[in-house]
Nucleic acid binder design. Sequence first.
DNA 1: CGGCTCGTGCGACAACCGTCACACCCCGTT
DNA 2: AACGGGGTGTGACGGTTGTCGCACGAGCCG
Lengths: 235, 235
Amino acid sequence: MTELDLIRSLPLFAGFGEDALTRLASRSVIRTHPAGTVLFTTGEECRGLFVVESGRVRIYRTSPTGREQVLHTEGPGRPIAELPLFDGGAYPASAVTEIESRLLFLPRAEFEALYRDNPDVAAMVIRGLGKRLRHLVHVTETLAFRDVAARLASYLAEFAAQHGTATDAGTEIVLDRTREELSFELGTARESVSRALKQLSQKGVIEPLGRKRLLIPDVARLRTLGRPGERTNYE
Amino acid sequence: MTELDLIRSLPLFAGFGEDALTRLASRSVIRTHPAGTVLFTTGEECRGLFVVESGRVRIYRTSPTGREQVLHTEGPGRPIAELPLFDGGAYPASAVTEIESRLLFLPRAEFEALYRDNPDVAAMVIRGLGKRLRHLVHVTETLAFRDVAARLASYLAEFAAQHGTATDAGTEIVLDRTREELSFELGTARESVSRALKQLSQKGVIEPLGRKRLLIPDVARLRTLGRPGERTNYE
DNA sequence: CGGCTCGTGCGACAACCGTCACACCCCGTT
DNA sequence: AACGGGGTGTGACGGTTGTCGCACGAGCCG
């Protein structure tokens, strides 16, 4: 896929004229990064806009003891770090590729020129920021109120809804993440994820199929477990 | 203060023409709400924009067990709930007046018309959303990584920097909040705040003066305690 | 003055979880 | 086949914290 094709397919740039698109394409760069590449870290000055073509990027904060809390992960078609582009501040978090990823990079100066000429982008950006804000509110509530098992249930239910394949026994998902990556996602430790998985499977809401596959007989029930009010209370 | 005066003084509407301002003023309403008034709750549909003239409004989520987590509190001059105005969604959180407050209210339809005619508002809104997003990232990290004492230290240091008065023995602050309100702020229980306060005062970084006043000999040291890496570890 | 409410502090207890240590398994390479 | 390393499950332990129960003091009103 060329820069132009990619840019044309992005919602962020929808409604742009053909000339604006080609100009954008000529100023941006596509690079393939292996898994584990750190794109930027907390506090660094913002160099430009990333857009995911393929792969997956995790945005996170780290604690001094090595634990991580992911704020969100972005997949194909999604922009990364629009925020510091606008308020001129530093990156509020770090970013790393979870798997090999092709990313488009648009230097900051270029983006600013684009933004001046096309005020319509503003609406798109606001929508994007809003979505992220809502997501962060959810993360915050989750951390403040729910135990690890509930957070995991909620996460798995969401994952199943997005990436699951329906079978007649229920929804099947392929968790292409390590337990450690899951623990980052939930803001907890690797071991706690193992234990929470066991609890959920003892409850019968999930059923392990091989190493990374899971069967979820009833996604709605799983989601219920993740909601506040129904603590798992470990009986 | 009239509607017009208030609107003119808001950063959100800076750069507007005089006619736009008067039009805005004619469509908006100022009301005084007693302490504890719930302005809206999570999931409710968005009716319009609030702006604080005087007082203080707490934006929060609740757990089914009655605990709260405040996302942010807004004081004079600050808008509330711009987000749902743009993406058309529901309020992502609830809002309540912590003390008696005078609030300006601008109905939704009116705001949308304004927004169409003055694209410059977009930049202002983006800046506002960005600030909020950065703040939420901070809240999230805090919840994920730090214990209650560290969160309290961080909160008090910030409070001292904003509302403290310098004396020759250190910075003095007047905490016009109950322990329960503090616990909402920190996402914990009322009793845990008491314990954390005792710990901090045993460490000598704060010194109780009467009921609601605190002396902070060294704000920088208090802030250090709140930062990850220096756990209070309760010796 | 007595009673009431509200905010507060404190002790006890259990739940939850982070950490450490260790054994195991899967799967690649040599 | 042997080896090794990354990912994983499990038990033990202690620290933090939510919850419950209770006592105390301040302020208010009757």
